[in-house]
Design a protein around this nucleic acid. Sequence first.
DNA 1: CAATTTCGCTACATTTTTGTGACAAAGGCC
DNA 2: GGCCTTTGTCACAAAAATGTAGCGAAATTG
Lengths: 236, 236
Amino acid sequence: MRPKILLVEDDASLVELISYNLEKEGFDVIRTDDGEEALVLAQEDKPDLVILDWMIANLSGIEVCRRLRRAPLTANLPIVMLTARAEEADRIRGLETGADDYVTKPFSPRELVARVRAVLRRLRPALSGGNLDYAGISMDTSAHKVTRDGSTVSLGPTEFRLLRHFLEHPGRVFSREQLLDAVWGRDVYVEQRTVDVHIRRLRKAVNAADNGTELPDVIRTVRSAGYALDAAPLPA
Amino acid sequence: MRPKILLVEDDASLVELISYNLEKEGFDVIRTDDGEEALVLAQEDKPDLVILDWMIANLSGIEVCRRLRRAPLTANLPIVMLTARAEEADRIRGLETGADDYVTKPFSPRELVARVRAVLRRLRPALSGGNLDYAGISMDTSAHKVTRDGSTVSLGPTEFRLLRHFLEHPGRVFSREQLLDAVWGRDVYVEQRTVDVHIRRLRKAVNAADNGTELPDVIRTVRSAGYALDAAPLPA
DNA sequence: CAATTTCGCTACATTTTTGTGACAAAGGCC
DNA sequence: GGCCTTTGTCACAAAAATGTAGCGAAATTG
């Protein structure tokens, strides 16, 4: 699932630059240039991280930061501050308000992306690391490797993301639409039936053992609802 | 032996913050707030790395940097510059005077430590571990020598660093972006495809035995994700 | 059981991503 | 200065992945 980032910035060209690079790197970006709106979006859209410019309209960045920290829902939301002031005093004040990292303007897109990744890795390990195990399937996300009862499973990029999404929400049923949102991205337009094809490819890969034998299907089709990854298929 | 770091900084609270964090992370810290004294300490205490603030009393950081580079004993001493000016021009000037990396204020202690480690790893391989072994490859970091199942492997500088990075994180997949950051450095701007070319050069060198025979490829391409060094290639 | 919806599967054209050789610029060495 | 190594980039070839259409099977409905 693509991490979602709330970008609070009022310089249009910066918004453009940052969004472009973040999206290219696999993040979904929600934008606003208004402090009050940022607070609302942080509550409602549940982003995984907030990039916050120090100086924005309606509320200062630092105030937004404080309020985010006070609200229970967003108290632990990772925050990266964007600032033009490099002075030490600001750094301290910033830390006291609870930002998790800082990026000083001017910055390179790559640096920002790297910082965002670093903060997410530190605060949201589930998003970027570790192993996922379920239904005899084991996925090493950092090595990009998957095994099923020992035999290695080889997957294409999309199948990998699809399977990861299922492993992150074991047993749960997802509609094609939800899968498109989660695996393909919010603003990608593809046919819903495309999901079927990838489900088939995933099934094919996951249900085949190294020695060529067929394993029981772990993906359950829920007619007129979607698909789910199941631990134990019902005995017939 | 704990690496020794000379910290040249005149902001007392910063000295405190930095020293605390470096020592916590396994470094010994020598402090001074005076440029002239820094030169003396650099000669006499033989630190492994210098952290140098741009603006310090008695001599500017940039001048200290130049003089360190001129003295034979300290010509190759790794230097990390601390600066409040984030402008690109300053970065360039700093690099031209011979600093190996720079950190822009405000920075988080974690970031500084990470940079220090990165610079040491890049310039003082001996400090960060002796031999690395994985997947039949053996790297003597201090002698700068690599063997694959006995046969010697000859690598250019960049390929060496690339391989070392893989050996330090065996099995893990790195994106081109991550590799650029880790192997080339944070502030070097090269095309991402350049990584491909160096991967190819590395493959060529590592997969060729002394007698001219081809060995199995140890570098795994992970489509749309990056590359990894793998122990066990595909069983045919 | 017939009508209708939903799904599995295959084939295929397109797009994306990676491999590879060549080349010129930069830097080190003598 | 010449000579050699290393480096980054490009252009093109090769390979892999992707999205869609289409057809028939299976489930659902009534």
